[in-house]
Design a protein around this nucleic acid. Sequence first.
DNA 1: CTTGAATGTCTAGCGATGCTAGAATCGGTG
DNA 2: CACCGATTCTAGCATCGCTAGACATTCAAG
Lengths: 193, 193
Amino acid sequence: MSVQERKQRERAERERLIVATARELAEQQGWDAVTTRRLAERIEYSQPVLYSHFRGKREIIGAVALEGAAELAVALRAATSAADGPRARVTALARAYLDFAERNPAVYDAIFQLDGGLAFAHEDTPAPLKDAFAALLESLGEVAGDGVDTGLFTELFWASLHGLATLTRAGRLPPPETGRRVELLVDRLAVLP
Amino acid sequence: MSVQERKQRERAERERLIVATARELAEQQGWDAVTTRRLAERIEYSQPVLYSHFRGKREIIGAVALEGAAELAVALRAATSAADGPRARVTALARAYLDFAERNPAVYDAIFQLDGGLAFAHEDTPAPLKDAFAALLESLGEVAGDGVDTGLFTELFWASLHGLATLTRAGRLPPPETGRRVELLVDRLAVLP
DNA sequence: CTTGAATGTCTAGCGATGCTAGAATCGGTG
DNA sequence: CACCGATTCTAGCATCGCTAGACATTCAAG
């Protein structure tokens, strides 16, 4: 069945191409510019081909979101593993998170703002999303403070970062002071042992 | 020139009707359902009439946002004025904020998520938006802590609330624990004199 | 090598969307 | 009452997500 295998491989390859192209287009010109027609043209196939891989545009956004979540987890772990001590780890984590959001706004939106048809905070949440949250929890769990649930603390810290990320990018918060806000956030929320 | 005055009055009245109808439609069925056709039908005029009042859908969203921001400011001040002491005030503020976001999701989106063509964090920011921020600052300024800029502290607290509001509504955070998250947030961020 | 069926892809089109030009109608004024 | 300017509507454009059915390609059997 080598023929079928080759076809499957090519199909998977094309699917990766679709996701990568959608992501690229979204980062370059925003998600509004990611139309099925433009996307089809870029991958040099017709529109219906997209629908043979995904149910619709939502699922394509969802695929970009999963890819992005995996990268976010990697970036967070890389940042924290390079830091010494809980305090430095949390600061590095926060910076890495906001950095990711700033550098990959479209991907960040796909993960947290847009509707990619993904389940959250459930058992059937996709693995990459769970893992990204786990990456947060790993460093934040050690500064939650006595008697405070680490999950709840992580949710709160994450929400704060998310708020900073989205409000800053939407022009609601002036970017220059981002660093000071992060310092204040870590100062106040993290309880050092 | 009584005739012109009457016309102006009727025109202003119709503009209010457009904004109110857009808001109602958005709260009932989401902003995606607020199409120029549906909106025109509901106010019993044709589409071009909308464009004689607003440049486009964006400006309509912006008008809803300004109206909502004014209400948010009122709600925040009502909540804080009924509380005794800085700590109680801040808790009441946080609850009122999240309550507003939960009860008026479409309006909240118009203010903080969607593009209503509004300027933020500038001098030419519309008054209602500035005032809503001022309402936050009034109560948060007294718990910023020594040596911490009250504006910066307010921005951070606001971002945290915004993150909680949006992530919760998007199904990213389980709603039942909202209360505990708010308590933790106030506990950690607010510095009592 | 030919042929038939199955698989894959494309063309063309549907119902909506935001927005607008030009026709039609309305209303105040001489 | 009749006209003319302001107002409103009809009808249409380009584009959107999505899909049915025509077309092409590929593989296996004769």
